[in-house]
């Protein structure tokens, strides 16, 4: 229990231990701790930033969606209007076409009537001539009596 030279040995040992710890043990460990602290802080900041950016993106997405919806509604409206116009136009065209066809048909009918009248007149005049031949019992000279026949034809045509 007496104090002796062991004391000096212990003091030297202690000094060496402290020196070694101070030089080679403490700084790297503390540095690792500090670095990790910084890393965690950075990570948290990045997470916060990411969250903020996500919120912004969401907001932007909502705006874009609303704009797109509005645009779509506009387009649909325009298309409906155009479709109405087209229907109106085709209706008009069909009406015109129909009228045209009716007009053409009427013209055709008119022409047919004229043609039938002409035929009828010629047949009647031929009939009349043959009837007259029979009545006269002789040949009617068509050349001699051309103006009479012509006259007759005209009268029939007027009837």
């Amino acid at each position: 229990m007496n104090i002796n030279a062991t004391l000096i040995g212990q003091m030297i040992t202690f000094t060496l231990l402290v020196w070694f710890t101070m030089k080679y043990v403490w700084p790297p460990l503390l540095q690792a701790l500090e670095e990790r602290k910084k890393k965690i802080a950075d990570g948290l900041a990045a997470a916060e930033k990411g969250k903020h950016e996500m919120e912004l993106a969401e907001k932007r997405a909502t705006t874009l969606l609303r704009e797109a919806k509005e645009q779509a509604a506009d387009i649909v409206g325009l298309a409906q209007k155009r479709a109405g116009e087209l229907a109106e136009e085709s209706k008009q065209a069909a009406k015109e076409e129909g009228e045209r066809i009716i007009a053409a048909a009427q013209a055709e009918i008119e022409r047919e009537i004229q043609k039938a009248k002409e035929d009828l007149r010629q047949q009647v005049s031929a009939l009349a001539i043959s009837a007259a031949e029979q009545i006269l019992q002789q040949e009617v000279d068509r050349n001699k009596h051309a103006d009479i026949i012509q006259n007759l034809g005209n009268k029939l045509g007027q009837a």
Partner: peptide, 12 residues
Amino acid sequence: TDLNATFGMSIS
């Protein structure tokens, strides 16, 4: 349990 060891540290 050796006074030399404890005094070694405390005197340092």
